[in-house]
Amino acid sequence: MEIRICAAAEVRKGCSMSKAPDLSAFPIPRKGGARPIDVDEVAVSAAPKTVEEAERAETADPPHMLTVVPARAPGPAASKRPPAQKTAAERVPEPASSGQTVATTVKLDENRYLRLAEAGKPGPGHLKRRTIQEMVIEALDEWFERRGL
């Protein structure tokens, strides 16, 4: 009598080991013929069956939300805290590097544009393209004007 040990790969190939399933009874396709569950059947079967179910699905609680909090990063509360009021001494401008100067100038220009936009001139979208030198001169003019110089 021939004794065989049935490997998993031999299951389909007629191994007679009693524990191996008889595959002829199962919906196993031929190679190349395997297909997933049909989409139409899915749409029909998976749709809510009653109006109540549909309403329940719409009014369901919002899903869980997980958040990743970096181990050493400051928490969101800390980052969103409004800056503390600065004293008069702190408001004195520090000597700025060229990068800071450009950033400050752009900010000044933005403020000026917003003021003009609020006053109705020019309308939104009419911000004039100017050079940094022009913006610096305007900002200095405004600064001198404010101090009555």
């Binding site: 299951v11 389909r12 595959l23 199962f26 919906p27 196993i28 396709p29 013929g33 395997a34 297909r35 569950i37 049909d38 059947e41 899915v42 079967s45 998976a46």
Partner: peptide, 8 residues
Amino acid sequence: VFFASRLE
């Protein structure tokens, strides 16, 4: 093995 099943 692969079963070509349907949802139902």
